[in-house]
Amino acid sequence: MMEKNKVRDVMVPVADFPRISDEATFSEAVQALEKNFDAYMSGQAKQRITLVHDARNRIVGKLTPVDVVRGLEPGYGKMPVDTSYSSFAATYQYVMEKAQEQTMLWSKPLDDLCKTAQDVKVKDFLRNPTEAHLVKADDSLNEALHRFVLGRHDSLFVTDNGHLVGLVRFSDVYREIQQHIKNVCKI
């Protein structure tokens, strides 16, 4: 379908994204997400995804509201997740009971919100990109499309020579599909 197009042709370089340090506190992370979202919604910024960098200024992940909520409960990061049952669980209560049994999760993470906001750092709850979240800059868009569909990701990290150099968003690949249908298929 899009064999001639490479990921690098549609990726957004890391320099185009707002960033936050992995040493930032939980509170600073919440404030950064709000600021970056507001800038995006007002048209002052082109990207709303917030990237996280380490002390060497290397990109180590992206920060999302879901990550922040996971930061309220550090046990989530230690929980062995069986995606085969979690995606098909009949009820929320079933999933929560199983999670609490496995990791003794806090029963009331919001009660300690102020302490968490001061003491917890982004690196304590950030999920590092897995192999499933990575594509190479010279991969075809077909490879990215397969990863999007199979992994249900909204974006993928793009690597070049082992370094994170950008993100390709699902919306960018979908736009290529639309253009291909309109311009090549002439439908």
Results as ranks from 00 to 15, higher is better:
98 K>F: 04
138 D>Q: 05
87 S>I: 14
64 T>M: 09
180 H>E: 13
137 A>I: 04
82 D>Q: 13
161 N>L: 05
147 R>K: 15
165 V>P: 02
39 A>T: 00
167 L>T: 05
105 L>P: 03
16 D>P: 00
74 P>V: 02
123 K>E: 09
62 K>G: 12
13 P>N: 02
146 H>Y: 10
78 K>S: 14
40 Y>M: 02
74 P>T: 05
160 D>L: 13
172 D>N: 10
122 V>S: 09
115 K>P: 00
89 A>E: 11
33 L>C: 11
20 I>R: 01
51 L>Q: 10
42 S>P: 03
6 K>D: 07
121 K>C: 13
78 K>H: 12
104 M>L: 08
129 P>Q: 02
136 K>C: 01
172 D>T: 04
117 A>R: 11
115 K>I: 13
116 T>F: 04
46 K>V: 03
50 T>E: 09
100 Q>A: 11
167 L>F: 04
52 V>C: 12
120 V>S: 01
131 E>H: 04
166 G>Y: 05
144 A>M: 03
22 D>V: 03
47 Q>K: 13
179 Q>T: 14
91 T>A: 11
120 V>R: 08
122 V>R: 09
168 V>D: 11
103 T>R: 11
115 K>A: 12
53 H>V: 15
129 P>H: 04
85 Y>G: 01
133 H>F: 00
96 M>P: 03
94 Y>M: 12
176 E>C: 14
124 D>A: 12
172 D>Q: 15
170 F>C: 08
115 K>N: 08
15 A>T: 15
90 A>M: 09
73 E>R: 02
6 K>A: 06
62 K>Y: 07
186 K>T: 12
173 V>S: 07
11 M>E: 08
13 P>L: 06
80 P>D: 15
82 D>W: 01
21 S>W: 07
55 A>F: 00
88 F>N: 12
158 V>Q: 06
62 K>F: 04
182 K>A: 08
116 T>H: 07
171 S>I: 09
4 K>P: 06
134 L>R: 06
54 D>C: 00
55 A>I: 04
187 I>N: 11
45 A>S: 15
25 T>W: 02
61 G>W: 04
49 I>T: 15
88 F>D: 10
184 V>F: 08
104 M>I: 02
48 R>Y: 11
162 G>C: 10
115 K>H: 09
144 A>H: 00
161 N>D: 15
151 G>Y: 05
98 K>T: 03
